[in-house]
């Protein structure tokens, strides 16, 4: 487990030294979401109807944008070799990197959701369910994203490739992530959707590090 915290601390320290990268992801998230009223019109009813879905779609895209910095920098400067050579399991190392990625992108996104909720007229009763869904769902994005980012290392057009690989895998998170706040608006229980999201989280927690570690070893060959 020590490798988990060592990698986590290292990546958090790196992120803190160049905070612009995290902030840019959040900036993209907010700006892209505020573009929507220009596209569909500013009527509060229209926006309220689609707000939860919009927040999620923008979160997916923002997460995607941040994925290339998960392994790319370490791959380019040779750190990846050393990470793979550090004593301890590579899968745990991957988990440490994913945790750092989530803390520096997923969490800031969630924190900025209330702002978007105001902009997009999200029904107030949907907000707690949306936040809970994002707390469970955004780690899945980081976990699945790690697989895509690791697979695309060293490829031509790596960034666009990562999107192509992981976006279809994000669909279940999107579906249940939106279903929870919508259920809350319809006065139904959001709990079942949140439980499914939790299931997706645990599934991804078990399988993604394995696949990402295999992909990293392949990239280092």
């Amino acid at each position: 487990m020590s490798i988990f915290f060592a990698v986590l601390r290292r990546d958090l320290m790196l992120a803190l030294r160049s905070p612009a990268e995290s902030l840019m992801t959040v900036g993209f998230f907010v700006i892209a979401a505020t573009l929507v009223p220009f596209g569909v019109g500013p009527e509060p009813e229209t926006l309220a109807r689609i707000a939860a879905g919009l927040v999620w779609v923008m979160a997916l895209l923002a997460a995607l944008l941040s994925l290339d910095r998960l392994f790319q920098a370490d791959y380019e400067d040779g750190s990846l070799d050393l990470l793979l050579l550090s004593p301890g399991q590579t899968e745990i190392m991957v988990l440490g990197k994913v945790a750092a990625h989530w803390l520096t992108t997923g969490l800031p996104l969630i924190i900025s959701v209330p702002l978007l909720a105001v902009f997009l007229h999200l029904p107030l009763e949907a907000l707690p369910a949306l936040l809970a869904a994002m707390l469970l769902g955004t780690p899945v994005l980081s976990l699945l994203g790690a697989v895509g980012a690791a697979l695309a290392l060293g490829a031509r057009r790596g960034g666009a490739l990562t999107s192509l690989l992981v976006l279809p895998l994000f669909i279940p998170v999107l579906i249940f992530g939106v279903a929870a706040p919508e259920a809350a608006v319809a006065d139904l229980a959001a709990r079942p959707h949140l439980l499914i999201l939790a299931g997706l989280f645990f599934g991804a927690l078990v399988l993604s590090p394995w696949a990402a570690a295999a992909a990293l070893r392949l990239a280092a060959e």
């Binding site: 020590s2 060592a6 601390r9 290292r10 320290m13 790196l14 040779g78 004593p87």
Partner: peptide, 24 residues
């Protein structure tokens, strides 16, 4: 290896500390 795996945003000592905590 060929590459130094040195992170520009960290100081020299911090670079080493990061690796020391990884490798024990």
């Amino acid at each position: 290896g060929h590459q130094d795996a040195v992170k520009s945003v960290l100081t020299a000592r911090e670079n080493l500390t990061a690796w020391a905590s990884l490798g024990g």
